[in-house]
Amino acid sequence: MSNTFEPKILGILCNWCSYTGADLAGTARLKYPPNVMSVRVMCSGRVDPGFVLDAFRHGADGVLVCGCHPGDCHYVEGNYKVMRRIPLTHRLLEGMGIDPKRLRLEWVSASEGVKFQQVITEFTEQIRALGPIQLKEVAFAPDEHGGNGHVTDKKLAGEEV
């Protein structure tokens, strides 16, 4: 199974540098794995650690956050904010039994199409090696997505409660 595992990775890219860098990788027709699904935010400083945790509990195998290089943020210090959040988020993940290597922060400028290609390739391979995230399913009732999310006897029976 493991050699056919295709990781699902959420990429959160800042509008001014990294998303443009990704765009450049595309227009330059650089090849990289299709596993990263990108979401654009105005600034990496917008990335709340809650986005990361929410992504994992919805089954993301990895989360990649990309912003402008330090000193280059269009909002001056948004990327310093995320730079301070990530190490503590890593420790939260570790404490919750999720390998912190599943979350990565990278600086990608608008001209670094090649770096974007490398980061995506490398991170995808790293997550592939880590394998699929295995959540304790029963704890993940679909509370915000239809259904009332309540524990049912069916869920309790047979499953690890």
């Binding site: 650690p49 809650g50 990361v52 929410d54 330090p70 301070r84 959040r85 190490p87 988020t89 939260l92």
Partner: peptide
Amino acid sequence: GVRDQGAKMVSAIASVVDSTDP
């Protein structure tokens, strides 16, 4: 407006730390 107390605390802590060196 907050869903996860730990995530919110990470942001709060990050905002008082005075450093730009990883």
